[in-house]
């Protein structure tokens, strides 16, 4: 960053809309994916340790 400070930095020489929309979409996509995958893992492990496990385990111990 040279002279001009924050305002000039955010303006990106007039291309601020294109640059910051690109960076924001990337950040949102990554954040959504992390939240979604964590929720999926939580749900999957919950269903394993839930009621089904007690039902299934006796069959598997043979």
């Amino acid at each position: 960053m040279k002279q001009g400070g924050l305002v000039a930095f955010l303006a990106m020489g007039g291309y601020g809309f294109y640059v910051w929309t690109s960076y924001a979409l990337a950040a949102i996509a990554v954040a959504v994916e992390i939240v979604a995958v964590r929720a999926r893992l939580r749900a999957a492990t919950k269903s394993v340790s839930g009621s089904e496990r007690a039902m299934v385990l006796p069959d598997d111990t043979q």
Binding site: E33, I34, V37, R38, R40, L41, A43, A44, T45, S47, V48, S49, E52, R53, V56, L57, D60, T61
Partner: peptide, 24 residues
Amino acid sequence: ITLLRVQAIIAEREKNTSWIGEMV
């Protein structure tokens, strides 16, 4: 993220096995 998601997939697909019940 792939290693995180594959854990969920393994847990979903192997939920009727005894090992995953012990591990989780």
